[in-house]
C-alpha cells in the first residue's frame, strides 16, 4: 500500500500551469528522487504535498487519509516533513534551539527536549555549532540545519528540497550516507528533489521526472536515464556530464 499518493493534482499560477494532472505514489520505506529542469514544478509539488499551497484540483493522500489543502502544521504533525531549498532558519535562535523547536510537538520537558535536539544536532554533525546563532552558519551548515530540523520533527516521510545544492563534493558524502542510514535504521520514507544526478542514481529506488508541471516519466534510475524523452527534456545528450555538476 502506498504511504503517499497524489492523484490528478493540478495547480495554476495565473497563466502558468505549474502542475498538471500529477500522479505519484510512494510506498513506505521507499526512496524517490524527483528531477526535472528549473521551473518544472518540483518545489510547487512539495508545497502542495505539505499544505503550503492548495491544489486547484486533485488530491493528496497520506497514510490512508486525505490531507489535501490541510494546514502545513497539521501535515507536519502527522509525519510528513519537508526542508526548504532556500534555507529558512529561525534567525533569532541558536542551532540547538532551531532543532529543539521542531521536536517540541512530541517531546515535553526541558531536559528531554534538549537531549533529543542534541542527538539530532550530533547526527548531522553540527555539534560544534549547537549553541551559536543559526545565522552564523555557512551555507553547508544551514543545509544541515534544514535537515536536522526536519528530522527532529520525527518524519515518516521526509521531503528534501535540494539538500545537496551548494555543498562541495566532499560535503555531500556524509549527507548521502545519513540519508541512506535514515531509511535503513529509522525506516523513513524519502522523497528528494535533486539536480546532482550521481546522488539521484545512487540513492533512488525510483525516479520521477517532471517537465513543465507534468510527469514526464517515472521508473528506476536506469530506466529513466535511458528514456529518450527524459534525455531530451532534461539530461541532454550525455547524462554523465551532470553527474558531478
Amino acid at each position: 500500500m502506498s504511504l503517499l499518493e497524489l492523484s490528478g493534482v493540478d495547480k495554476k499560477f495565473r497563466g502558468l500551469h505549474a502542475l498538471s494532472d500529477v500522479e505519484m505514489s510512494v510506498s513506505e520505506g521507499e526512496i524517490v528522487g524527483v528531477i526535472g529542469p528549473n521551473g518544472a514544478g518540483k518545489t510547487t509539488l512539495f508545497n502542495v504535498i505539505c499544505g503550503a499551497l492548495k491544489p486547484d484540483s486533485g488530491s493528496v493522500r497520506f497514510a490512508g487519509t486525505d490531507v489535501t489543502g490541510r494546514k502545513p502544521e497539521t501535515i507536519a504533525r502527522r509525519g510528513m516533513v519537508r526542508t526548504f531549498q532556500l534555507m529558512r532558519p529561525f534567525a533569532s535562535m541558536t542551532v540547538a534551539e532551531n532543532v529543539s523547536l521542531a521536536a517540541q510537538h512530541h517531546t515535553r520537558g526541558a531536559e528531554r527536549l534538549r537531549d533529543r535536539a542534541m542527538e539530532v544536532v550530533e547526527r548531522v554533525g553540527l555539534e560544534e555549532w549547537a549553541h551559536r546563532p543559526a545565522t552564523e552558519l555557512p551555507t553547508a551548515g544551514l543545509k544541515r540545519l534544514e535537515l536536522a530540523r526536519a528530522l527532529a520533527a520525527r518524519p515518516r516521510v521526509l521531503l528534501l528540497d535540494e539538500v545537496l545544492a551548494g555543498l562541495l563534493p566532499a560535503e555531500r558524502e556524509p549527507v548521502l550516507d545519513l540519508l541512506a542510514e535514515l531509511r535503513e535504521q529509522d525506516g523513513t520514507t524519502l522523497v528528494f528533489i535533486e539536480h546532482i544526478m550521481a546522488a539521484v542514481m545512487r540513492l533512488s529506488d525510483r525516479v520521477l521526472v517532471l517537465d513543465q508541471g507534468a510527469v514526464l516519466a517515472t521508473g528506476t534510475p536506469d530506466e529513466v536515464t535511458a528514456d529518450p524523452r527524459v534525455i531530451d527534456a532534461y539530461l541532454g545528450e550525455e547524462p554523465t556530464p551532470h553527474a558531478d555538476a
Binding site: 494546514k71 526548504f84 529558512r88 532558519p89 534567525a91 523547536l101
Partner: peptide, 16 residues
C-alpha cells in the same frame, strides 16, 4: 517566536 522568525518554516515543523 519561531512563527515571528519564519511562519512557513515554523508551520512546517508542526507549529500551529
Amino acid at each position: 517566536v519561531a512563527i515571528r522568525d519564519d511562519e512557513l518554516a515554523a508551520a512546517s515543523v508542526g507549529a500551529p
